[in-house]
Amino acid sequence: MHKLKNSNNMGLFIFFGFILFLISNRVDELRVYQGASIAVFVIAIASIILLTGYSGQVSLGHGALMAIGAYSATLARNELHLPIVLSFFIAVLAAAIGGALLGAAAARLSGPYLAGTTLALAVGLPSLANQFSILGGEQGLTFDVGFPPMSLGESFTQYKWYFWISGLAALISMWLLSNILRSRYGRNWRAGRSNEVAAQLSGIHTGRSKILAFTISAGIAGLAGALLSMTIGTVSPSAFPLALSFSLLTGAVLSGVTTLSGVMIGAVTLVAIPEIADVVTNHIGSSENITTNLPGFMVSTLLIIAVLFVPNGPVEAHRVRSMKKLAKKKVNALTKPSMEGNT
């Protein structure tokens, strides 16, 4: 890692962690499980925000990269019997390597070409599980992180353990990301996004910078994939459908692709959607078609609405609005006395 500036917000993240710890002791099992899912989505959406919002590349292949992470972690755990932390680390590494390869192709492409290429990957990669018997085919493999340590007490449940692991992972990766984005690399990405030629003129190797963005983003996505398979206990091709990549993109757009700080909005929405869909289908009397497809419908509709009406995300929209208000106030304050002076 190069120089990480402004790392003084570490205290803030530790504070967040403490709050999360307090919450996890108060709420029931289902909420704790949803908390774990939110943490997983926070990590995955952050990886998209880094890639799309900061380096200007669209990826629909992050579902596939998550699958790489999930399978590597599972294999490391089942075949090599590595400790959990190490198998998560391997997930990050494997997905990052995959991302670097994809990024090398991606650096030569942009916009629709990249989107299409990653789309083809997302459709194609999960079916590889049927090609190699070690990956367990359609059934997949079980991924077991083990029971929570005894030292945490008798009443400490499995779901709470998942929540702690994924919450901690989310905090660490958000802290790392927010620092990377403020470093030289983050500035290089933003420069390349807003004007590639100008960035090259000022000495930034935009191709290399894009590959780096893709690699880091993929590594984080791999971590999210490993955590996802931890919370569901298995890893299989059906856990990483094209719809997952779509959901992540929706989450990122809802959060505002250019601001990391909105990431919770997207993550909470994605976890809330199935529950809202449940409520709706209970009200209008459900057929099976509606029950299975309503969440997908809501995700896609939200994506369209967000792109049309808050293309830069609610956080950015709010910031712009309050800046305008502030500017107006200042102008008013400046012009009033002078007008009185004139009369």
Binding site: T52, G53, G56, V58, L60, G111, P112, A115, R193, S194, A243, F246, L249, T250, V253, V257, T258, G296, F297, V299, S300, T301, L303, I304, V307, L308, P311, N312
Partner: peptide, 18 residues
């Protein structure tokens, strides 16, 4: 805006989902 270049891509994907 920042994502003007990728907005049409995201929009058609949303349409596909709908």
């Amino acid at each position: 805006g920042h994502i003007a270049s990728v907005a049409p891509i995201i929009a058609t994907l949303g349409l596909l989902g709908v």
